[in-house]
Amino acid sequence: MTLAAATVTAAHATTTTAAETHGFLSPTGVEIAFLLVGLVTFGAAIVTVTTKQLVHAALWLVVTLGGLAVEYLLLTAEFIAWVQVLIYVGSVVVLLLFGLMLTRAPIGRSPDADSGNRWAALTVAVAAAAALVWVVVDAFRTTWIDLGDTAGGAAGSTAVTGASLFQSWVLPFEALSVLLLAALVGAIVLSRKTKTTAAAATTPSVPGTRSDKADQADADQADKEGAR
């Protein structure tokens, strides 16, 4: 008990002294690597939200998410990094590309990718960025993360993450599986109901056209789901 308290205070003392000795003008190697990868990530994010070619936006999103995975590795959160690569780069971007293809996105440049309120959006984004960066830098200017190994190993190794996930976070984990099941069923219902009503609408009438009633019902359904 007292030993643990002593180690806590000792760790706190080392972090504070480390924060005093490390300046921004003499960055360590990890910081330089983090800065370079961060620049690539931020640049790719900028291109993602500004490019006029829709498929290129999805491909630049891959660069952004992969750069974030490297940042997680630099922060010693290796399990999160591989989960990021698996789920985001592996499945989410593929889903987005499928969505782009299924909505018949043009391959070349599309001039109306940005809406008319671009300058208002830019103003809001720059104001938010300035406020957030100012507050964050002012608050955490002297805070130092000790990335070195301690007795428990790296902070985000698979053993540590798995132990905490299945000891302290079992109930949210199981609830999350229920949520994933609900999302699966919801996605199936969303794509299946329109198909059945479309089939019911096209069979009595001329094939290729739709009755307005079924169309309106589908629109109402989509609006309800969107508002949820």
Binding site: H22, F24, T28, V30, E31, F34, L35, G38, T41, F42, A45, I46, T48, V49, L54, A57, T64, L68, E71, L74, L75, L96, G99, L100, T103, A105, D112, A113, D114, S115, N117, R118, A120, A121, L122, V124, A125, V126, A128, A129, L132, V133, V136, V137, F140, R141, T143, W144, I145, L147
Partner: peptide, 30 residues
Amino acid sequence: MHLAYPAVLSALLFSTGLYGVLARRNAILV
């Protein structure tokens, strides 16, 4: 590593996403 580096990068990425949500017209880009 200074905590300011990941925090600033996170703030910048969030603002970039905010710009994209406000300025894009295609729903998939949003």
